[in-house]
Write a protein that binds this DNA or RNA. Structure first.
Lengths: 215, 215
DNA sequence: CCGACGATCTTGGCGGCGTCAAGTTTGGCA
DNA sequence: TGCCAAACTTGACGCCGCCAAGATCGTCGG
C-alpha cells in the first residue's frame, strides 16, 4: 500500500512519466506547492492539507502519490541531492576541476533552492533509507570525493577523506549560516566574490598557524 | 500579557528565581522536557501537550510561563547561546587563545547539547527579536570575533570579518554535518583528534592552492 | 488574624492537522 | 462495450496549538 504511489512513477524523470487523470500532474503540483511553502515558512510549518487546497484537490489526494508527509519530504530530498550533484558536476566541468568553483555551486544551490536544501539536511523529517534518495545522495558524495581527490593529487584515502571533511564542512557551514543568520546579506548577489574573499582568509589563518603547523 | 511569564524570572539565573506553587518549578520542567523531546525527535515533532503530560500538569499550563510554543523555543535558543558563549570563552582561556580549541568547544557543544543547537539555528521556529535572546547571541558572536582578532594579530576589520566567516563556517559546517549525517560517527568520542586531522587537511588543501594563492 | 489579590494551574472548547477507510469518477485496454 | 485499476473524494478519528473562563493557593496589607 505504501509503496504503490511512490514506486510507480519509476526511475526515469521527475516531471513526466505519469498520465494526467483528473488533475493533470498532481505529483509535480504537490512537490512544487510544498517547495513554495517550505521556502516561505520552513519545513516544520508544511501542511499537506494546505498544499492540496492550493492545488485544487481534496485533502487526502496527495496521499495517493506520496504515502504520507514523510514521503513528500523524501521525494524533495532525493530531488535536491540530484540537483546538487548536477550543479557541482557542471561547475567542476566548466572550471577544469576547481574545488572552490564546486563550493560556490554548492552555496548557490543552497541559496537558490532553499527548500530542497533545508529538507535534505533534516533527516528526521524523511525516510533516509529510501533507495532512490540513498543513491542520489551517494552520487552527490561521489562528485565531492572526486573533486577533492583531483585537487590533492597523490594522496592516501585518509588524506582525501580529511580533505572532503574540510571542504564540505566549510562550504556547508557557509551555506547554512547564510540561510539561517544575517550573515552578510548584502553580498548575496555576489557569492563568488564573498567565497573567494573568505578563501583568502583561510590562507591567512593558515599562515598564522591557526589550523596547525605548515608543511 | 505575553511578556508577563517570560520577563518575571529576570536576568539572573535560569534554575532559581521562581517560587514553587503547585508544581515546584514548572518553567524548568517544561524546558527540560522540551529539550529531551527535541533531542530525541527533532524540533518539528515537539508537542507542548506531550511535555505538559510528562511534567504532570494540564495541557495549558506551559502557556503561563511561555506565551506559546515559539516562546519555549525562544527560551531554549537564548539559553543555548549563553551556554555556547561560556563554553567557547572557557576553551579560549584554558588554551591561551587557540582558535582551534574554541572550534572544538563549539563542536562539542553542538554534539553535547544537540537540542539547544538545533533550535538556535532554526530562526523560523522562535522570535529572533526577543531582547534576551539577541543579547545572548551577540555575546557569543563577540567571543568568536575576539578570538579571530587575537589570532590574526594586526589585521583590518575586513580581514577579521573574513576570518570570522571562515572559522565560523568551517566549525559550524563540521558540527552540523556531524549531527545530520553519518559523518564519521566512530570518532565522535575523540572530536579533538578529528578536528585537528581535518585542520591538517586544510593546511594541505591550502598548500595545493585550493583556496587561492598563498601569501 | 483574615480577607482580598494575583500568580499558578485546570477545564472545556475551537479549528486545523495527518492519517485511515470506504466510496466515486474516469481513462484505457481486452 | 464492459471491466479494471488508478486517481481522487468524503467522512471520521485522535492529536495538536491556542483561547477563555474558572478553580486553587501562597502572600501581604489591614
Amino acid at each position: 500500500m505504501s509503496s504503490r504511489g511512490c514506486s510507480l512513477p519509476g526511475v526515469a524523470g521527475h516531471a513526466v512519466g505519469k498520465r494526467p487523470y483528473h488533475h493533470g500532474n498532481l505529483r509535480r503540483a504537490v512537490l512544487d506547492g510544498a517547495l513554495a511553502s517550505i521556502a516561505a515558512h520552513g519545513p516544520a510549518a508544511l501542511s499537506l492539507r494546505d498544499v492540496a487546497r492550493r492545488a485544487g484537490v481534496s485533502h487526502a489526494a496527495p496521499a495517493h502519490h506520496f504515502a504520507d508527509k514523510a514521503g513528500v519530504l523524501t521525494a524533495i530530498a532525493a530531488e535536491g541531492y540530484t540537483l546538487l550533484a548536477d550543479a557541482m558536476r557542471d561547475a567542476l566541468a566548466d572550471s577544469g576541476g576547481d574545488l572552490v568553483a564546486s563550493g560556490i555551486a554548492y552555496i548557490r544551490f543552497a541559496l537558490g533552492h532553499r527548500a530542497h536544501f533545508e529538507v535534505m539536511f533534516r533527516p528526521e523529517l524523511y525516510r533516509a533509507e529510501d533507495p532512490e534518495l540513498a543513491s542520489a545522495r551517494q552520487a552527490a558524495a561521489d562528485v565531492l570525493l572526486g573533486a577533492v581527490r583531483d585537487t590533492l593529487g597523490d594522496a592516501s584515502d585518509d588524506e582525501v577523506w580529511g580533505g572532503v571533511l574540510a571542504a564540505w564542512s566549510f562550504t556547508h557551514g557557509f551555506a547554512t549560516l547564510s540561510l539561517n543568520t544575517n550573515f552578510t546579506p548584502a553580498r548575496a548577489d555576489d557569492i563568488e566574490a564573498a567565497v573567494r574573499q573568505v578563501g583568502a582568509s583561510v590562507v591567512r589563518l593558515t599562515a598564522a598557524g591557526a589550523f596547525g603547523p605548515e608543511v
